[in-house]
Structures are given as structure tokens and as C-alpha cells.
Amino acid sequence: MKKALNHYALLIIILGFIITITSCKHTPQKKETVKNHKNLTKPKNNAAQQSLSKAFKGYWYAGEAEISSYKLEQARYGEIRQGNAILIYVTEDFLPKAQVKADSQNPNNTSVLKLNTTKSFNTGIYPYSIMQSTFYPVLNNQHALKVSVSMQEWCGHSYMQLNNKNNFDITLHSYFEGEEDQNITVKKSILENELWTQVRINPKSLPTGILEIIPSFEYFRLKHIDIKAYKANAKLTNNTYTIQYPNLNRTLVIHFTPDFPHKILGWEETFKSGFGSKAKNLTTKATLLKTIKSDYWNKKMKIHKNLRDTLQLN
């Protein structure tokens, strides 16, 4: 009798262990499942919630990124520099609380359309490398959840990151005196970085009129101005979006195809470049070279170098 009770107790322990393990598992979600975390972000003034069309899901949830290469004419130090720019758009599952890409699917994920923008150009003897990342919810009714920029050149490197919480929490690390390690809180406003992704989701939802916009993180690093929102005037035509910052003497024009998937054809950015009295208005230009769809994260062997030829990057 005692031996039978011991077997029964052991069976109860094993069953309890199995139930505990099973209860910790999450049911995987389909990639196109989206979730709105209103506690982390506030609705944008001109952006209505975006329903995902069949065409949108078919294009952006096919397990590939869209990679576009551009001929770059970059204004820097009062001269135009030749280089290249790349826009990489890809959907990802994002963890709003941890503010990082999710390794697995679970109900707490937010589906984002991520944009990585890179620029490479030389200034005389030494090179510049700039990269920006923007994580923007595909529902198109929230601000970007995270934005970052890194800049490397021979004098040093800097990094700036925004995390969308109760406010915009920004950290800055720089080699410049007066810009060392900083923590900055900025009131929520339209982010120029997020507008590049909003174009791809629904250009008709782009904000227009007299607005307060936080300029691109790249511009903050190149010009070393106060990190805040600036007065702007935004206009939208059939396939062009223009932002003018009167107090910065800066204008950004983005050209895109009017039909889905609203590919970025190029852009111009005019601002004062150079030092002191010799500074003058110059225009940075980017012209589309080639667009491909690719799971580039699986294309890391020598045999895949030909894709760089396809993108006209060599």
C-alpha cells in the first residue's frame, strides 16, 4: 500500500511539472498580426490607424527586405561630396518595453516597418559613415518607438538614441566638448525620421501645414544644434513631400512613386554648409540607382558579393 502511494505521489509531481512548462509557452502569431500600445505612445495629429491591405502584407511580410541604392551628392564643409546612400526597409517584431527587436513572436510584440539609412562619402583624405535607424509601427497611428543615429569619421564617433516612453528620452554620446554623455527629455512631437517610413505606409496621412517637427538625427549631429522641435511648414503633392524649417534655413524634399509601395525615388536637402562668413546654401541630392528585395541577412558569403554589383555599390 505504501509503495502504491509513493508511485501516485510521483505521478502527481510529474504531471504538475508538465502543466507548469506548458503554461509558460506563447502561441506563435502570424507575422502580419499587429498590436497598438497606447500606454507607450500618443496618437499622431494627422495619422489615422492604418488597416493592412493584402498588397501591403504581400509586399512587406514576404520574409525579405527592400534595399534601394542612391547616388549621393552630400553637402559638407561648404563643398559637395560624392558618395552613396542606401535605404533598407524591413518589417520586424518589436518589444515596446525593452525597445529592441523581438527574437520570437508573442502577444506583446508590435509590428514595425524599420528603416535603416546609411550614407558613405569622403571629405578630403578622410571618410564619413552615417547610419540612422527608425522603428515605426505599421498601424501608422503612433510616433516611432525608437530612433538612433551613429556617425563615424577620423576625428571620432558619436551616437544618439531616442526611446519613446512617457516623453521622448534621448541619450547622446559624443567626442565633442560640451556634448559628452547627455540625457535629454523632449516633449513628444512629429519626428522627421518617422516621416520617411510613413511615406511607405500611406503618404496621404503625412502631416501638412504649420507644424512643430524634430529634425532628422543626422542633421542634429552634422549641425550640433539644440535637440528639440522646430517650426516647420509641410506640403504634400501627388508624389513629393516638402518640409521647410524657416528658423533653420533648411528645406527637405522627398520624391516617391504615387502608387504602392510608394518607393523613394530620391531627395534634396538644402541648408547652410561651411564655416562662418564663408558658409553658403548647398543642396544634398540622392538619386535612385537600383532597388531589390532580398533576405540580405542570409547573403553573407563571398558568392553573394555580386548583389553589391546589382546595387551599383562597387
Rank of each mutant, 00 (worst) to 15 (best):
L145K: 06
L211D: 01
Y159F: 11
A9H: 04
V186Q: 08
T20S: 09
L288H: 02
K42A: 11
V149H: 01
S273V: 00
A55P: 05
A62H: 02
I254T: 05
P137H: 00
G63I: 02
N298L: 09
D309R: 08
E66A: 09
I13W: 05
K44P: 00
A9S: 06
V90M: 08
S150H: 05
N106Q: 10
G58P: 06
I214L: 07
W154G: 08
N183S: 12
H7F: 08
Y128N: 15
F217G: 01
S69Y: 01
S53N: 04
I21M: 11
K263H: 11
T171V: 14
N239I: 01
N6D: 00
T123I: 12
H157Y: 05
V34L: 12
R308S: 08
N39A: 13
H262G: 01
K272T: 10
Y126G: 04
G83L: 03
A9Q: 13
P127T: 02
F176I: 14
Q29A: 14
L265M: 13
M301E: 15
N116K: 13
K30V: 10
A4V: 12
N164R: 07
D93I: 00
L282C: 03
S133L: 01
S68G: 06
N238D: 13
Q182G: 07
H262E: 04
